[in-house]
């Protein structure tokens, strides 16, 4: 069972204990504030932008090329930015913490 914590733009923590799927789908299922996922994972919208806590970056990896192309069009992004639809939860990511970017 892998656990993920979302820190929302208003500072609340949403903890999901048995996270299965990608971070966008999980966030939508748990109604995490700030994650819309409008395009359902097609890299069209960037409404699922999160920042990965620095200590987890090695395990999640950085944005893929397709993802980065979209992130580059957004404001308020940095090297920790990921589209949560492109991050698949796994046992290796148990304990992951991400910050939801304001939209």
């Amino acid at each position: 069972m892998a656990k993920v914590t979302y820190i929302t733009p208003s500072g609340n923590e949403v903890v999901v204990e048995d996270a299965i799927g990608n971070l966008m789908e999980i966030a939508r299922e748990y109604d995490v504030e700030g994650i819309e996922g409008a395009c359902s994972g097609c890299c069209s919208c960037a409404t699922c932008h999160v920042r990965v806590k620095p200590e987890w970056l090695d395990k999640t990896g950085r944005a893929t090329e397709a993802e980065q192309d979209l992130i580059d069009l957004e404001s308020d992004t940095d090297e920790r930015s990921r589209l949560s639809c492109q991050v698949e939860m796994s046992e290796e990511l148990d304990g992951l913490i991400v910050e939801v970017a304001p939209f």
Partner: peptide
């Protein structure tokens, strides 16, 4: 993919009907 189109607009006025249309 990626497909960063703006057919539904962008920013605060992003189309309200986009979830329905999609």
């Amino acid at each position: 993919k990626p497909n960063p189109h703006v057919a539904f607009g962008n920013g605060p006025h992003n189309c309200l009907g986009a979830p329905h249309a999609r």
